[in-house]
Every structure is written in structure tokens, then in C-alpha cells.
Design a protein around this nucleic acid. Structure first.
Lengths: 161, 161
DNA sequence: GCCACTCACGCAAGATTATTGCGGAAATAC
DNA sequence: GTATTTCCGCAATAATCTTGCGTGAGTGGC
């Protein structure tokens, strides 16, 4: 599961553009097609590469507005958390959901077309599960968004090159 | 740029798995290869599909910890914002960055291996740009994360089927 | 030092998939 | 009713993926 310099180069390329032919990737990392393909294959088996997906333009599919929703609760137990998670899973508007430390207990990122749609979402949400303290923060603009994770921290065995 | 039911089906599939052969997508949406391929092609040209990327496992590349960083500032002007954006662009640890309304002015999501690495990031950040009020919230766990946007709001022309 | 072993590489062939050319049917315009 | 447009599907071609096989570098045992 350790990655060398070539693996990381491959991942950097695939995180930007997963349509690139293996032959071209190989050329860019200084490898012929076969060993490059085998490396990619192995990283998929190992789960380093989880999947390949199409990324859409939020505005073009009419979900240009992002809202961050903070939730505080008194229900601090596993069962409630699972129920909450189950409810959230049913909402495709919620694209990220975290259990937090500190002030708020849960944080989610919601994408909607506009304020009105957010209100609909909100009402639907509180009808499915009882939430004591909810607060919403609207994003005025997305300055940066990337699915590419930094590879500077990845575990390495030999890093001579 | 309007999408009909078939387009949305195609997008749903591609948002889950962009490696699926066009022939199979066609079969699933009730279309032969060629028209299905042309639809995908058109949606790429129109920018609805922005790109196809590989999604990695955060834990496997050693960035299992997410931190949300809230920033308040007194500098409410375009120039400063651009500078800030430029600085953030240089940090691969910052995977999302939003300009917010309300209490905080900016919100970013940062991925790191652990608390120590976050501290390094934090010190590096404040050395690059002067920030008055910064507060960090650590995620204890990622309950949901998807790159798939909801298509329920997409603009539609004819929706007979 | 030499042999056996493993591992990663590259070439070349075969299998899949993407892409294009062409012709036909359904919907729309006039 | 006819012309035009649009979308479909078949079949051929081009590109890419995937596998089989042989080679050389590096490693450990002796």
C-alpha cells in the first residue's frame, strides 16, 4: 500500500483527468503501457483508487447554491447517530456530512438551486428527524473546489528519485 | 442545455461510475451505443460534464482528517479576496474554499494526516497572509461524502416520460 | 562469488471499447 | 403534403485496454 514517486505521479494525473489513455500516462511518468497499467490496477485493488466518476458543473444542473448546516443535539448515542445518518443518506442534496468535535455536533454541506429550495429541504429534513439546534450558513461563492487529495503525505518506502 | 429524462439517467450513472462502457449505459437507459455516445459528447461540450476524475481513499493516502477553518476579516475588498484566493490555491491541503455570508467571511475544508500536520499547515498559512480571526473545527468522522450532485433540480424541457 | 528466486519491466498479440459514416424514421415547420 | 430538422440504429474503422510471454535487475542463501 506504500506508494513510490511514480505511483504518486500517476495518481496526480488520474485525479485531474481519468480519461487519459494508459499509454500517455506511461509516457508522462517514464514507463511503458503495461507496467503503468498494472500499477493502476493494483492501486484499484488496494482501494487507493476508490472509483472514477464524472464531475458535473453545479450551476449547469441548477444546484449553484451551497449551504452549510450545523446541527447541535442532546442525543449523544450511537443509535441516534445511525438514524440521523440514515435520514441524511436519503437526501441527495446533502453531499457531505461530518460528525464534529467542539461547538457543533454535525456539519453538512447541502446543494440547492436557491434559498427557496433550501427552505423546502429544511422543512423536509425536520419532518423526518427531530433536531434541537440547527443553523444555516450560505456560501456566496465557491472559490475553490477539488476532488484531488494532496499526495504529499502518502506513505513512501523508497524515495530516492 | 436542458436535460431530458434519458440525459439525467446517463448522468446519474456516470456520476457513480465513469468507467462504464457506453454500450452498457445505452442498454440501461434504453438506447443504442451511438446516440448515447453523442449525448454524452454533447454534455461534455456544453460543460454539464466538467471532467472525469479518479477518487482516492483519503485514509489510504494519509489524509484521513478533515478540518473546517472559518475566517473572519476586516479586509472587505476585491483585491484582498483575490490575494487570499491565490494563497489558498497554493495549498493542496485545502480542497474546498467558500466565501460566506453571515458570521464568518470564509470557510475552507482542509485535509491532513493528523493534528500535528494541521498545525504545520496553520503556521504556513498565517505566514503567507495576515488573518485576524481564524477558528478551526475538527471532523471526528466523515459520515457521507459524494461527488454526485442531485439532478432533481435540473432544467427540463419535455418530461413526458 | 554464484545460483535460485522474485519483481518490475517492455514487446507484441488479442479482446474491448470508442468513434465515425451512412441511411432511415419521427417530429416540426411552412 | 412536402421540406427540414432531429434523433435514432447498424456496421465498419480506429483507439485503447488487457493478457501472455520473455528479459534483466536486484536480493538472499550458501
Amino acid at each position: 500500500m506504500a506508494l513510490d514517486k511514480i505511483d504518486r505521479k500517476i495518481l496526480t494525473l488520474l485525479q485531474k483527468d481519468a480519461t487519459m489513455p494508459v499509454a500517455e500516462i506511461g509516457r508522462k511518468v517514464g514507463l511503458s503501457t503495461t507496467p503503468c497499467w498494472r500499477r493502476i490496477q493494483k492501486m484499484e485493488e488496494d482501494g487507493v483508487i476508490q472509483r472514477r466518476v464524472a464531475v458535473l458543473d453545479p450551476a449547469k444542473v441548477n444546484v449553484g447554491v451551497t449551504v452549510f448546516v450545523s446541527v447541535k443535539t442532546n442525543e449523544h448515542n450511537e443509535a441516534w447517530m445511525r438514524k440521523f445518518a440514515g435520514v441524511i443518506d436519503e437526501f441527495p442534496e446533502v453531499v457531505e456530512f461530518y460528525r464534529m468535535s467542539g461547538d457543533v455536533d454535525y456539519l453538512m454541506r447541502v446543494v440547492v438551486p436557491d434559498i427557496g429550495a433550501y427552505d423546502s429541504f429544511y422543512k423536509k429534513l425536520i419532518s423526518k428527524i427531530n433536531l434541537t439546534d440547527v443553523s444555516s450558513a450560505f456560501a456566496m461563492g465557491q472559490i475553490k473546489y477539488t476532488t484531488a487529495l494532496p499526495l504529499d503525505f502518502a506513505i513512501v518506502v523508497d524515495d530516492d528519485k
